[in-house]
Every structure is written in structure tokens, then in C-alpha cells.
Amino acid sequence: MDRKRISATVALAAVLLSPLGAFGQAMSHARAKRLQEAHDRRHHHKAKIVGSSVAGGAVTGALVGGPVGAVVGAGVGAGGGIIANKIRKHHGIKHKMRHGY
């Protein structure tokens, strides 16, 4: 009888405390995201990545298609830079969560 009661108490505690684990993880994700965004703002990472992608796209487009190609290339480069920045930021957040910053 005693073993059943202890098992039931442990099972009940596990069920009741499981939402707290998810809450703790969400808080660490929020903190990691906040730290990553603050770091990026200080170092202007988004502007550097998107700006260099725009410049590279414009140069490539100008070589291939002249002035119209430069405009199209700049647009394509901007889109690629935004996607690359999002991936880099996501990786940084996951890295901070994994290492507990």
C-alpha cells in the first residue's frame, strides 16, 4: 500500500510540475532572444549583412544586365540578405539557449 501511495504522489507531482518546465524554457528563449537582438543592435549586423548583399547583387546585376539588371540584382540581394540575417539570428538565439547565457 505504501509503495502505491508514493508512486501516485510522484506521478501527480510530475503532472502538476510539467508546465513549469515549459515556462522556464520559454523564459530562457525570451532572454536569449533579447540578448541576441541587443548584441545585433550594438554591432549593426543586420545593416552590414543586408547592405553588402544589396551591393553584391547590384554589381552582379549591372555586369549581367546593365542598369536595369543592377536594380533587379539589388532587390534580389536585399531579399537574400534579409533571409541570411534571419537564419544567423535564429542560430545565435539557439546557441545562447544551449550554452545558457
Score class of each variant (00 low, 15 high):
1 M>S: 12
1 M>F: 15
2 D>Q: 11
3 R>I: 10
4 K>R: 15
5 R>L: 15
5 R>V: 15
6 I>H: 09
7 S>Q: 13
7 S>V: 11
7 S>Y: 12
8 A>T: 10
9 T>W: 10
10 V>R: 04
11 A>M: 14
12 L>D: 07
15 V>P: 02
15 V>N: 01
16 L>R: 08
16 L>N: 06
17 L>Y: 06
17 L>A: 10
18 S>M: 15
18 S>C: 14
21 G>Y: 06
22 A>Y: 14
23 F>L: 13
23 F>W: 15
26 A>V: 15
27 M>P: 00
29 H>V: 13
30 A>L: 15
30 A>D: 10
30 A>K: 06
32 A>Q: 01
32 A>S: 11
33 K>H: 08
33 K>C: 06
33 K>P: 00
33 K>A: 12
33 K>T: 15
34 R>N: 11
34 R>G: 08
35 L>R: 05
36 Q>M: 12
36 Q>N: 03
38 A>F: 04
40 D>E: 14
41 R>I: 09
42 R>K: 11
42 R>C: 03
43 H>D: 07
44 H>M: 06
44 H>G: 00
44 H>C: 01
45 H>V: 12
45 H>L: 12
46 K>Y: 11
47 A>H: 09
49 I>Q: 00
50 V>F: 07
50 V>C: 04
51 G>K: 02
51 G>V: 05
51 G>R: 03
52 S>I: 13
54 V>H: 04
54 V>Q: 03
55 A>C: 11
56 G>L: 08
57 G>S: 06
57 G>Q: 01
58 A>H: 01
58 A>G: 09
59 V>P: 00
59 V>W: 02
60 T>K: 02
60 T>N: 01
61 G>F: 00
64 V>D: 04
64 V>A: 14
65 G>R: 03
65 G>I: 04
66 G>P: 01
66 G>L: 01
67 P>C: 06
68 V>N: 02
68 V>T: 09
68 V>E: 08
69 G>K: 02
69 G>Q: 02
70 A>L: 07
71 V>E: 01
71 V>M: 08
71 V>H: 01
72 V>R: 01
72 V>K: 02
74 A>M: 04
74 A>N: 00
75 G>I: 05
77 G>Y: 00
77 G>L: 02
79 G>H: 03
80 G>N: 05
82 I>R: 04
82 I>M: 11
83 I>G: 07
85 N>K: 12
85 N>R: 09
85 N>F: 15
86 K>D: 10
87 I>E: 08
88 R>G: 04
90 H>G: 05
90 H>M: 09
92 G>Y: 04
93 I>D: 00
94 K>R: 10
95 H>C: 02
95 H>L: 13
95 H>S: 13
96 K>C: 05
96 K>Q: 10
98 R>L: 12
98 R>Y: 07
100 G>D: 12
100 G>W: 07
100 G>K: 09
100 G>S: 09
